[in-house]
Design a protein around this nucleic acid. Sequence first.
DNA 1: CATTTTTTGGACTATCGGTATAATATATTC
DNA 2: GAATATATTATACCGATAGTCCAAAAAATG
Lengths: 294, 294
Amino acid sequence: MNERKRQVLLTAQRLFINKGFSTTSVQDILDESRISKGTFYNYFSSKNECLIAILEHARNEASVRRRELLIGQDLSDKNILIEQISIRMHVNREQNLLPIYEAVFHSGDDDLKTFIKNMFLAEFSWLSKRLVDVYGKEVAPHAADCAVMFFGMMQQLLHVWSAVSKEEIDTSKLVSFVMRKIDSIISGMIDANDIFLHEDVFHKLNSDQGEEMETKAQLLERLTGFLELLGEETRPAAKQYVQFLLDELRTECPRVFVLESVVRSFREAFVGLSHEPEAHELAYKVWSYVDSKG
Amino acid sequence: MNERKRQVLLTAQRLFINKGFSTTSVQDILDESRISKGTFYNYFSSKNECLIAILEHARNEASVRRRELLIGQDLSDKNILIEQISIRMHVNREQNLLPIYEAVFHSGDDDLKTFIKNMFLAEFSWLSKRLVDVYGKEVAPHAADCAVMFFGMMQQLLHVWSAVSKEEIDTSKLVSFVMRKIDSIISGMIDANDIFLHEDVFHKLNSDQGEEMETKAQLLERLTGFLELLGEETRPAAKQYVQFLLDELRTECPRVFVLESVVRSFREAFVGLSHEPEAHELAYKVWSYVDSKG
DNA sequence: CATTTTTTGGACTATCGGTATAATATATTC
DNA sequence: GAATATATTATACCGATAGTCCAAAAAATG
């Protein structure tokens, strides 16, 4: 992705946050980022596509940080899950995306609608899986219900809070509060075999919606391309992570725990550097690949 | 309210349901209801005001039916509460209002935003009170949390259901399901004194947002006006309810239980008649008055 | 320097919500 | 029934919107 395009994206994001999506005109973006109309529509095929790019970036951001939290940790640690959920909330709040999600969910554009829908369903699917990790496999039949209710409670409490209170909300307090409610709910559901949604509501989504997975070859190609991109001014310490990832991935059976550790260090090494965005993007790709294998 | 205006309102509602609010243009409404632009803007000062009129009508509809359900019943009967909640869901579904609420909640128009916001907060406030009715006054400190979570769970489950399933949702099954979750949650909250929202988050709303209450004199005036409006073709049986309500209200201390019964019969007597809308409106006013006194 | 790619800026289209108005139709009143 | 008041119509108009198109200028590339 072009550097200028990224600037435009950031400007658009800032405007959407401050003024709202529908009330921000394309002209506003043009004025603010000092580009011409032609350039904008060269970058994005429409205002909606521009928004989608922003949302995708936020999703990847949250995704990477969530995965890094799990490195070397116990999957069943409830506090880790709380932190992971808080991360999404933080990203959403920092970027003020929640209103955008909802404002756009019922908009006229079908692409935009299905994009947001899939985003939400993917989130539910993820939380379902994690709830089984934490509470054990006997909650599997109820995981979908619980995941959906979790988000429902959280989102609605958040709405009311911001509608009636001026104070900044305490994110982890909210997440912990809702998690305790799930604690209370779960045993009763299991005892009474109380189910509303089918257990496998999200299975179909995982297969057809999942962003196109890259092949190992494509991933290696991206990494080598990135390595060549790095000039002499980049610290060798930063470069060596890329080289290591390449070597490890090329082995017959790459060690997952090693990849996990190194990809995090790799991303962190590029924070603040000029190629941070590309590094982040790559980290996301590697994580996706690792997840698909493990 | 003019008869023609009501027709326009119904047409607009149908279009909003079928095409969505933002994607329905004023021109669409004009074409469909065969009126001119001038007439439309004579009826409504804007497209948003037109929507507000629709939403207000739906709210009154649900409100009247809910109150009627309570006549002669035990306030603490949980099944009645379930029915009452189902009513709102039915009205919303019949009129497909949920998407409209959400689509509009983050729109640019401030009037519209605060209208919807107040509508939701009034709903939370109502449910808080009813939860105390049902579960006892010791849940009062947690009623706001529970009410908000109730709606959060319900709404999110509804979203997912309609996103992944073609079948029509079983409303009372959903409401009962969520109510059972509240059952599970409440005792734990009381034991641990677990609170997120303040108990009185909604109190402020009730005072300043509450639609302008009519004085007794205004109410009597409306009733007499309605009585005069009724021509000779109206059945005396229908008229006598109005006369009775007038007499009872004029007494020093109107008996609430009598008003409750009669106002329901009054409304039912006009179902299908030409003055049904006005009768419904009046029933709503009387209910509001009764509630404010009782 | 020559070629290719990107960027520019403005003209243009169609639609939107909303305003203004003058002419016409429908009620109401005397 | 005539006079008056009110409601409705049709249409032109406004400013703002998202998006298209294109020729010229600028910048990057070999």
